[in-house]
């Protein structure tokens, strides 16, 4: 597994207890992905709020709409739009935990992050392992927060698949963890076959090396 330094991917635009939106420049877009674990961490503070990216969108305006109609837009124009015009890429994040006084808690934070708090991508192996470590009972309580997200705004099944796949790799292809996550999902969704079955099918496709079907 490759450990990478903390990667700042943008700053908080707006926030609530349940989630927050990140604004970033186009140049910052190469690292974060749908399902990535991120944290909003004010400078100089050890407190932070963790979340999963569940949506990324890039707005347009009338100028972009007009430029799209041209054949072969030239490089100068594309670079002008990406580097100079104030159209930030926006990512929506679902809160799944927070850290306070050195303790990691898989629940909604007492306060949301503030505007312009920097947001980092969680890619350090130790930090990812700490956040995603099952409890002694094998439970992964933060998965409940994902399942409770409003389905009309958050693609829950796809988010679960992307997150499990991402963490599996960041934990060094940790099959034990991945299967623990699958068992937790089966337990939490035992009354919701409509969500459970497609999620398991998608996981089995995304991680064919795992005996999910079995």
């Amino acid at each position: 597994m490759m450990d990478r330094a903390q990667v700042e991917i943008g700053r908080v635009l707006r926030a609530s207890t349940a989630g927050f939106a990140i604004g970033c420049r186009v140049s910052q877009l190469s690292q974060p992905a749908f399902g990535s674990l991120v944290k909003a961490k004010p400078l100089g503070s050890e407190e932070c709020v963790y979340g999963l990216i569940y949506d990324m969108h890039i707005d347009d305006d009338q100028l972009i709409q007009r430029l799209v109609m041209t054949e072969n837009p030239r490089a100068e124009i594309i670079e002008d739009q990406r580097q100079n015009r104030m159209l930030p890429v926006e990512m929506s994040v679902l809160t799944v935990g927070y850290k306070q006084d050195g303790r990691l808690i898989h629940g909604l934070p007492p306060r949301p992050p503030l505007n312009l708090d920097p947001v980092q991508l969680c890619v350090e192996g130790d930090e990812v392992r700490e956040f995603t470590e099952p409890l002694g009972t094998g439970a992964l309580p933060y998965l409940r927060l994902i399942l409770r997200a409003p389905a009309n705004r958050v693609p829950v099944d796809q988010l679960l698949v992307a997150h499990v796949r991402d963490v599996y790799r960041l934990r060094g292809n940790d099959q034990v963890w991945a299967l623990t996550a699958v068992e937790e999902l089966i337990e939490l969704l035992r009354s919701n076959y409509e969500l459970l079955v497609p999620t398991l099918e998608a996981l089995s496709t995304a991680l064919p090396e795992l005996p999910i079907g079995a």
Binding site: E76, E79, D80, N84
Partner: peptide, 14 residues
Amino acid sequence: GIVYHHGQGEAPEV
């Protein structure tokens, strides 16, 4: 305003 570098493939300066 803008300083546009025609034919150079660079982002303009604003």
